[in-house]
C-alpha cells in the first residue's frame, strides 16, 4: 500500500520532535565529533537545567491557557535576595527559602490577578515583568554582586554529586516530582480539565481559581529555584540577570514539547524533550561558532515553524 505524503506526515507529526532531534544530533556529531563526548552531553544538561526547571514550572500554566512572561526578573530577584540574606548572616536554608519566597509571592500575585480578577495573563505578567525588574534593581542596583565565602551555596550550582553536577540532580528531581504530580494526582487531571474547559471544570465543582493561582505560584517558585541555581553557578547575583529573551526560551521549550498555547493538551515529560531540543541546538551552534545574532534569529524561526507545524497537525 502506498501512503500519500499528507497521510505519512500526519503519522510522523507526533514524533516530529524526536526525529528532528535525531537528525540534528547526527548532523552535529558528524561535523564535530566532540559533540558526542559524555562531558559535552552532561554539559548540555547542565546548561539547560536553569531553563528546564522554569519550563517544567510553566507547563501547567500554559496548559490552562495562561502564560508567564515575568520569570526572567523573578530569577534575578530570587538570586539577589538569597545572596543578600546570606551576606546578612542568615543561615543557608533560610536564605534559600527567602529566595524561593520571591517566586512564591510574585506567582501568587500573578495568579490572583489572572484567576480572581480575570485579566489577560500576557498583559498581567508583562506588567509584572516590569514591576519585578524595577524592584530587583531598586534592591540590588544594576551591579554584579560576587558571591564570596558561601561555599555551600556555590555548590548548588557548581558542585558535583555522584559524578553529576548538583544542578542536574536538582533539574531531574523537579522534573520527576512534576511528572508524578501530572500522572498520579488529581491536580494533573484538574489542570487538563481547566485547560480544556474552565467553565465546565467550575460547574463540575472544582475550585478553578484557586487551582490557577497555585499553578502560577508553582511557576514562580520554579523561576526562583532557577535563580538560585544560576547565581550559585556563576558565583554572582545581579538584578539584571534573566534578561529579555529568558522567558522566550522557556515558553519555546514548553511549546516545542507539544503543549498548546490555547490550553488543554500538554505534558511535563514532553516539555523536557523541548528543553533538550533547544539545548542541543544552542550547544551545537556554540560548538560550530554560530554568532549570537544568528542564534537569536534561528530561535525565532524554530518557534514559529514548530508552532505552525502543531497548528497543521491539528
Amino acid at each position: 500500500m502506498i501512503a500519500s505524503v499528507p497521510a505519512l506526515g500526519r503519522r510522523l507529526a507526533p514524533h516530529a520532535l524526536p526525529l528532528a532531534m535525531l537528525v540534528i544530533i547526527i548532523a552535529f556529531a558528524v561535523s564535530e565529533p566532540a559533540f558526542l563526548k559524555p562531558d559535552n552531553l552532561i554539559g548540555i544538561v547542565r546548561q539547560v537545567a536553569i531553563t528546564g526547571i522554569m519550563a517544567v514550572g510553566m507547563t501547567f500554566v500554559i496548559m490552562t491557557g495562561g502564560i508567564d512572561l515575568s520569570v526572567g526578573p523573578v530569577l534575578a530577584l530570587s538570586g539577589v535576595i538569597a545572596l543578600f540574606s546570606l551576606d546578612a548572616g542568615v543561615p543557608l536554608p533560610l536564605s534559600i527559602v527567602a529566595g524561593l519566597s520571591v517566586g512564591l509571592v510574585v506567582g501568587l500575585l500573578n495568579g490572583f490577578i489572572v484567576a480572581r480578577l480575570e485579566l489577560p495573563p500576557i498583559i498581567v505578567t508583562l506588567a509584572m515583568l516590569s514591576m519585578v525588574r524595577g524592584s530587583a534593581l531598586l534592591i540590588g542596583g544594576p551591579d554584579l554582586h560576587p558571591i564570596r565565602g558561601h561555599e555551600a551555596y556555590a555548590a548548588i550550582g557548581s558542585g558535583d554529586f555522584l559524578g553529576l553536577p548538583i544542578s542536574v540532580h536538582l533539574f531531574a528531581a523537579v522534573t520527576v516530582l512534576m511528572v508524578l504530580v501530572q500522572k498520579l494526582t488529581p491536580l494533573g487531571l484538574l489542570v487538563a480539565a481547566i485547560g480544556e474547559n474552565e467553565r465546565a471544570a467550575r460547574l463540575s465543582g472544582h475550585r478553578t481559581r484557586l487551582t490557577k493561582m497555585a499553578l502560577y505560584a508553582i511557576c514562580g517558585v520554579g523561576a526562583a529555584i532557577a535563580g538560585i541555581v544560576q547565581s550559585s553557578q556563576v558565583h554572582t547575583a545581579s538584578a539584571v540577570y534573566g534578561e529579555f529573551g529568558t522567558e522566550l526560551d522557556v515558553i519555546a521549550s514548553v511549546v516545542l514539547g507539544g503543549t498548546s498555547l490555547m490550553g488543554g493538551n500538554g505534558s511535563i515529560a514532553r516539555t523536557i524533550l523541548g528543553v533538550m531540543f533547544l539545548g542541543i541546538i544552542n550547544n551545537g551552534m556554540n560548538i560550530l561558532n554560530v554568532p549570537i545574532d544568528i542564534q537569536l534569529i534561528a530561535k525565532g524561526v524554530i518557534i514559529a515553524v514548530s508552532l505552525a507545524l502543531s497548528e497543521w497537525r491539528a
Partner: peptide, 19 residues
C-alpha cells in the same frame, strides 16, 4: 461550552465531579 472537556477521554469526563 459548559459541560464537557471535549479533548479529554470519556473516562476523565465521567469521573470529573467525583475525583
Amino acid at each position: 461550552r459548559d459541560g464537557l472537556m471535549l479533548g479529554l477521554s470519556m473516562t476523565d469526563n465521567l469521573i470529573m465531579s467525583t475525583i
